[in-house]
Simulated assay, not measured.
Amino acid sequence: MGRGTGMRRRGDQMAKWRIPGLAARPRFTSRATVLVLVLCSLVAILVYPARQYIAQRGEIADQRAKAEHARQQVDELRRARARWQDPEYVKAQARERLHYALPGETPFVSVAPPPAPGDKQSAADATGHPKAARPWYSSFWDSVDAADTALAAPPAVP
C-alpha cells in the first residue's frame, strides 16, 4: 500500500462524518472579519489620545521640576534676606565690599605701582592680562591694511 491509498482511506473516513449538503466553512467568517475591523478601528481611535496623554505627563513632570527649582531659589533668597537682617553680617559686607572701617581703625588698600615707561610689562595690568590701547576692531583693520600694502609693494631687489 502506498502513501496515496492511506490518505484516501483517511479522507473517506472523514467524509462519512460530514453532513451531506454542507460545504467546507471558510477560514474567516463575516463575524470574524467585522470583529477584526472593529478592533483595528478602536486601536486607531485610541492611539492619538494615548499619545497626547503621554506627552502631557512629560509636560507635567517638566513643570514640577521647574516648580521645585523655583522653590529652592525662594528658600535661598529667604536665607539671604535673613542674613541681611543680622547687623554683624551687614558690617562685614560693608567692610568687604565698600572698604568701610570702624572709628579708630586704619584701613589699608594695596595698589600696584604704576609700570615704568621702559618696562616690558607696561602693556599688561596687575592680573597679567594685556591692556588694549585701542578697540580690537581698530587693530584688526590696521593689520588688514598692513597686509594689503605688503602685497601691493614691489619686492625689493638686493
Rank of each mutant, 00 (worst) to 15 (best):
C40L: 09
V43Y: 13
C40M: 15
R25S: 14
R27K: 08
V90A: 11
H99E: 07
C40D: 09
L39N: 10
A112H: 06
R31E: 10
L42H: 02
Q72F: 10
Y53A: 15
W84S: 15
R83E: 06
L37C: 11
A82W: 01
A101F: 04
D62M: 14
A82I: 05
R79T: 10
Q63P: 12
T29S: 15
A44C: 14
P87Y: 09
F28T: 06
Q73W: 11
D75K: 12
V109C: 07
P113Q: 06
V36S: 12
L39E: 12
Q52N: 11
V90E: 04
T33V: 11
I60M: 08
A70Q: 06
A67Y: 07
E88N: 11
A101I: 02
R64D: 14
V36H: 11
H99V: 04
Y100K: 02
Y48D: 00
L37E: 15
R31T: 11
L37S: 08
L102K: 11
A61Y: 04
Q93Y: 09
R64A: 13
R64T: 09
L102I: 00
Y53P: 01
F108T: 07
G104P: 12
R57G: 12
A112Y: 13
R79K: 09
R78H: 06
V38E: 05
E76W: 11
A80R: 05
E96H: 02
F108G: 02
K66V: 08
R95S: 14
E88M: 04
A50G: 13
L77F: 08
V38A: 09
F108A: 13
L37D: 15
V43Q: 02
A61P: 00
D75N: 12
V47T: 05
H69P: 00
D62Y: 06
A70T: 12
V47D: 01
V74W: 01
P107T: 02
V111T: 15
F28Y: 04
P103M: 01
I54E: 13
A82K: 11
V43A: 11
L39W: 03
Y53M: 14
I54S: 04
V34G: 00
K66N: 12
Y100A: 08
R79S: 15
R71S: 09
R57L: 14
D75I: 07
T29M: 04
P113V: 04
A82M: 01
I54N: 06
E88Y: 03
V74Y: 08
A55G: 03
R78D: 10
S110T: 03
D75F: 04
A55I: 03
R95G: 02
C40W: 10
P103E: 07
R57D: 04
R81T: 05
L42T: 10
E59G: 13
L46R: 04
A61G: 00
A61C: 08
